[in-house]
């Protein structure tokens, strides 16, 4: 049984109170260039998924709380949640460092080419809550 924390409203609940929305940080290719999408790019968007044995980054929804989507970093073997962060945010830097394989590559590219200005503007109100949460990260409990 996973115990999940919502970084938006702050509630804690078990996995049935939340909904796992699958892999995080998938950009829809058609958003930036709808006319020019290769079949392979559309395939990657729809079906290719990072499937790591270890640290994974996911979207979750606070189903029976505030109803908001958020991001979580979770280990798929130990089931431990490493971090919760806002739906528009990138994971905390120390968690990004723990990423391996495809995720490590992804964050190298994503953090390199990211415009700094937009990040701070969108992030501020949510970032405050995640910062507080970061000091005492909730651990996933197994029963």
């Amino acid at each position: 049984m996973l115990i999940v924390h919502c970084p938006v409203c702050g509630v804690e609940g078990d996995e049935t109170d939340f909904h796992c929305g699958g892999q995080a940080h998938i950009a829809r290719p058609a958003t930036s260039d709808p006319a020019n999408i290769a079949d392979a790019a559309q395939r990657d968007y729809l079906f290719m998924r990072f499937n790591p044995k270890g640290l994974h980054f996911e979207r979750w929804r606070c189903d029976r709380g505030c109803g908001k989507w958020f991001h979580a970093a979770r280990d798929t073997v130990t089931q431990e949640f490493k971090a919760y962060y806002g739906i528009t945010e990138m994971p905390p830097a120390d968690v990004i460092k723990q990423a391996t394989g495809q995720w490590a590559e992804f964050f190298k590219q994503a953090t390199a080419g990211r415009p700094a200005a937009r990040k701070t503007a969108v992030k501020k109100p949510v970032a405050k809550k995640t910062a507080a949460r970061k000091t005492a990260p909730a651990k996933a409990k197994k029963s």
Partner: peptide
């Protein structure tokens, strides 16, 4: 179980 998992155990719900 509705999330990625490699632990061969699964959960109670």
């Amino acid at each position: 179980d509705p999330y990625n998992n490699y632990s061969q155990r699964g959960s109670f719900p």
